[in-house]
């Protein structure tokens, strides 16, 4: 057991060093493209860490987290577009290009939206929970598609990347470091949650709701809080993703995106601290390496996913580190 834990820690440290080291090396070698690739990894990992709070810790298979990813993206896109045009947003609220403000708005909005979605969805479980979260996400997706003010189906372009105090975000490396800092904070949040009494109650709620009620804790409330926190983190990732691509489109909120986030977690190892990071690295590298050779690169990703599900239930990190409590 102890050997397994320390092996996972070693793997985590290696992943963290890779994530920091490779972009620095790429800049030194004059290959900034790889920095953008790494930023994509970091942001997808952040979105998946959000989902991992609900899915990995709480066993809540949300098939609608792309909705929050998309919402976060649209917050960045909408606030920045209005700011660029010197306009206010709805009801005369000021627009902004400041990332910290955008992040705050994205996180709060996603929390507010996740609250009713969670409160309704969590009355169901199993396959019904999956379907109802999907249904909510599709509502948000079609809302974005049918809102011509913000590009509708064509999406919304940001003219320049938003600003962060003291950082030149237009450059790939500084923006990467900003995203990496946010990811590190999310990893800490996940670690704190998992180790807390709340985390134990969430794990208990995943295992048996009746037993948890019998000690006087309402499983519904615990799961709802987890769902809301989870959505907030994924929404923050959405805002960063919009700035990375300087583009937001309804596809960020599509069900394919929700599926991708689940795939990242399953690949890396669900419930594991660095699981989403390992998953995002493999996913983006597959997309990059095989995507250049064939349009059907997802076929090979599918094979790999099949292999992980059949032979490595703990994900890629599970292969390295052995079983965790969640496997």
């Amino acid at each position: 057991m102890m050997a397994g834990l320390s092996r996972e820690k070693t793997a985590n440290i290696v992943l963290a060093l890779l994530l920091l080291g490779v972009p620095l090396a790429a800049v030194a070698a004059g290959e900034p493209f790889y920095v953008t690739l790494a930023t994509r990894i970091v942001i997808l990992a952040l979105a998946a860490i959000g989902l991992n709070i609900a899915l990995g810790l709480g066993g809540l298979v949300s098939f609608g987290h792309a909705a929050f990813f998309g919402l976060g993206g649209y917050v960045a896109g909408i606030l920045a577009t209005h700011a660029f045009n010197g306009e206010t947003v709805l009801f005369g609220l000021p627009s902004t290009t400041s990332m910290p403000v955008i992040w705050l708005v994205a996180v709060v909005l996603c929390g507010l939206v996740a609250l009713p979605i969670g409160a309704i969805s969590l009355r169901t479980s199993g396959v019904y929970f999956i379907m109802i979260t999907l249904a909510f996400a599709q509502m948000i997706y079609y809302f974005a598609v049918s809102w011509p003010d913000y590009g509708g189906e064509d999406g919304l372009s940001l003219y320049v990347r938003n600003t962060f105090p003291g950082v030149n975000t237009a450059q790939p490396l500084p923006y990467f470091l900003v995203c990496l800092g946010v990811l590190a904070a999310a990893v800490c949040l996940f670690w704190l949650l998992r180790g807390s009494r709340f985390g134990a109650a969430l794990e208990a709620a995943r295992q048996n709701t009746t037993r948890l009620s019998a000690v006087g804790i309402a499983p519904f409330n615990i799961k709802l809080v987890a769902f809301v926190i989870s959505a907030m983190v994924t929404g923050l990732a959405g805002a960063l993703f919009a700035d990375l691509n300087r583009f937001v489109s309804p596809s960020m909120a599509s069900w394919q995106m929700s599926g991708e986030l689940i795939v990242l977690i399953i690949l890396g190892g669900k419930g594991r601290l660095f699981g989403p990071i390992a998953g995002a690295i493999v996913y983006v590298l597959f997309e990059f390496a095989l995507g250049g050779i064939t349009e059907r690169w997802q076929f090979f990703l599918g094979l790999m996913l099949l292999g992980v599900v059949l032979f490595a239930r703990g994900g890629l990190l599970g292969l390295v580190a052995g079983r965790a409590r969640h496997d």
């Binding site: 794990e203 295992q207 009620s213 006087g216 804790i217 309402a218 499983p219």
Partner: peptide, 27 residues
């Protein structure tokens, strides 16, 4: 609801040794 009843001060040891298997003793 069950959790409200438990909060009133009722502690149940259910039939069949029902712990939370994937939590430590301390948790």
């Amino acid at each position: 609801p069950s959790h409200r009843i438990a909060q009133q001060g009722l502690g149940l040891v259910p039939e069949g040794r029902r712990c939370f298997p994937n939590l430590t003793v301390e948790e």
